[in-house]
């Protein structure tokens, strides 16, 4: 089975980058949680510092790629206006709005997804900066470490909200 160009891009946007984001989030969050001076040795702090900086930066980069690709490719196909008499299954936004049982997927779902998704890279970048800038000092500075953990978590919440809604919309009105 071959994917069309639009299907391939949408899959890359939602499942490819989404899976990387989820995996990197989990690893980074757990490493950061455990970065405490009483829990790890000096050698451990140094090893964690490098992994954390890599994970946090990768997470931020993936979040930016996801929203930029999503906004400037699949979203433009999603909201394209159909010509008169067109097959609406090729125009997801119009297809959803034409069906009273599915219209909420646009009026609530896509309206929330397209906005909330953009909070994820802002929050992930702030977390990555804290992790990169403070590095091993996070083991001793609980306040900054907790702030980075909160920013990472909120970034994940924003991305997961957008991702979940995207999955429902794609199920009901896939881009072809």
């Amino acid at each position: 089975m071959w994917l069309s160009y639009r299907e391939a891009i949408t899959t890359f946007h939602g499942m490819g980058l989404g899976a990387i984001f989820l995996l990197v989030f989990t690893g980074t969050w757990v490493l950061l949680w455990g970065l405490r001076s009483g829990w790890v040795t000096t050698v451990g702090v140094e090893a964690h510092r490098k992994l954390l900086a890599f994970g946090a930066m990768l997470m931020a980069i993936v979040a930016w790629l996801t929203v930029i690709i999503g906004t400037y490719l699949p979203y433009t196909w999603y909201r394209a206006k159909p010509p008169a008499g067109a097959d609406l299954t090729q125009y997801p936004r119009s297809f959803l709005l034409a069906n009273p049982k599915l219209a909420f997927l646009h009026s609530f779902g896509m309206e929330w997804k397209e906005h909330v998704a953009w909070l994820a890279p802002i929050l992930a970048t702030a977390a990555a900066y804290l992790i990169w800038r403070y590095g091993g000092k996070l083991a001793e500075n609980a306040k900054v470490r907790n702030a980075a953990l909160i920013l990472l978590t909120l970034s994940f919440v924003a991305a997961a909200t957008a991702g979940l809604i995207g999955a429902f919309i794609t199920k009901a009105a896939p881009l072809r």
Binding site: I122, A126, L130, R133, Y134, G135, K143
Partner: peptide, 25 residues
């Protein structure tokens, strides 16, 4: 620990955190 990390104040962390809040709002 990086040399640049020693004596690092919490100011840069506060700036990044507050700016993220401003960006979100």
């Amino acid at each position: 620990m990086n040399p640049s990390e020693s004596n690092l104040s919490n100011g840069p962390a506060a700036a990044a955190t507050l700016a993220a809040g401003i960006g979100c709002v």
